[in-house]
Design a protein around this nucleic acid. Structure first.
Lengths: 233, 233
DNA sequence: AAACGGGTTAACGGCCGGTTAACGCTGGCG
DNA sequence: CGCCAGCGTTAACCGGCCGTTAACCCGTTT
């Protein structure tokens, strides 16, 4: 169920880097690698990763600075610092730079893997029962109910709804959803639109209000209707 | 800006528990406490916490089982395990139960605090916000409010405003903004001016004061009105 | 006065998103 | 063995939004 994470490793020690790459490959994770901070920064800005592994001591730009700069630019991919610095101040400094986790060298690869998975799923959720307003998805029994009534979803509809509910009330970009359905190559047709439409038919049509909303130019959101904050001043 | 987190501590060692409570109080975090797994489970299900600290060795229900049960019930609050067990297998087991982080006793309180903040930063459902004066941009729900009222932006307007708010109160050069919209080749028309104008219509027109200011010859700035004494000599 | 930087409009056209219907594959069942 | 149902895919159509463009306007500068 780890589902093919995309990882970015920024590490100047080539031996360590290749070893990590090997281990990640065993876990079915794809991993890009950069040997210095600047190269890593550019990769991180250009591609969308699920999690990043950063060394601190690196040529050209160190891991802390790189993390800080990424955060300033709005990149909020989870970051796991990999470093030999183990004093308390180092750790506090790391977290202040926007790190999510901190692992001291030398470390066990099993722990690296497991922390990495924890980081990546922290965004996608890990509960077995998802609830969004009147919608309830039971992942063990594989059934969805709205206001108590069971809904029948197609397999793809299920995939979409699960991702939407996991991110609720956040917006999920169209490209993310497409990548979910077609990991390698999104089709050139409008298949996606049709799937989404049919999901709407299943989830919203039989009821009074819609739970699936498209945010123009941004993506799709699952949640209660938008309330315009009409607060008096 | 730790902003008053609500924490649940489940720990049967009363001495340790009171010490942790004291430290959290210093950080302006409110913290409930339970001394065994069952009590903790009930608290966790009843209230909404930002993050939970669980001991593993506890009477009635251990931390791992409690975490697992919460996940089954759909509670996805971040969990930080606090335990004396430090073998690799223990850690792997902990993460498998749905833990988000794992801290081995004895630990430094500064590290506890900082990891706890990192976890809550990622709290699912908690909005990532950009705030500039009365302007508030919710990056997850992809909506912008000013004085509570929701604004409707076009996709390009959103791009511009996000960059402006990120750099606020700094000035963003016109060429930077153009490069944001057209990475390869800025158009030869005045499309940029029009986009900026429409953004102003959306952000400033319905309100008394303007938040988007052009600094002649420099670029554009997002922020409260400038006090007069600014002249650089 | 002409040139320049910036602000304000209105109109056009393409693209995005929603909606249908039809086709084809696959797996189950008689 | 053949039929049917379910599901994914595709093409086509439509409406409205939004990006683009070319105007014109203004004040300041040269």
């Amino acid at each position: 169920m780890s589902g093919h994470l995309r990882v970015l490793l920024v590490e100047d020690d080539i031996d360590l880097a290749t070893t990590v790459l090997d281990y990640l490959a065993l876990e079915n994770m794809s991993c890009d690698h950069a040997a210095n901070g600047v190269a890593g920064f550019n990769l991180a800005r250009a591609n969308a990763y699920d999690v990043m592994l950063l060394d601190i001591n690196m040529p050209r730009m160190n891991g802390l600075a790189m993390c800080r700069k990424l955060r300033e630019e709005g990149v909020d991919t989870p970051v796991l610092m990999l470093t030999a610095r183990d004093t308390l101040d180092d750790k506090v400094e790391g977290f202040r730079a926007g790190t999510d986790d901190y692992l001291v060298k030398p470390f066990a690869f099993a722990e690296l893997i497991v922390r990495l998975q924890a980081l990546s799923r922290r965004r996608s959720g890990q509960a077995r029962l998802l609830t969004v307003g009147p919608l309830q998805m039971d992942l063990d029994q594989r059934q969805v109910r709205r206001e108590g009534k069971a809904l029948t979803l197609t397999p793809t509809g299920w995939q979409l709804l699960e991702k939407l509910m996991r991110h609720s009330p956040g917006v999920v970009s169209k490209s993310d959803l497409e990548q979910l359905l077609w990991p390698d190559s999104p089709p050139d047709s409008n298949a996606f639109k049709v799937h989404l439409y049919k999901l709407r038919m299943a989830v919203d049509k039989p009821f009074a209000s819609a739970l699936i909303h498209t945010v123009p130019g941004q993506g799709v959101r699952c949640g209660e209707a938008e309330r315009d904050g009409e607060e008096a001043v």
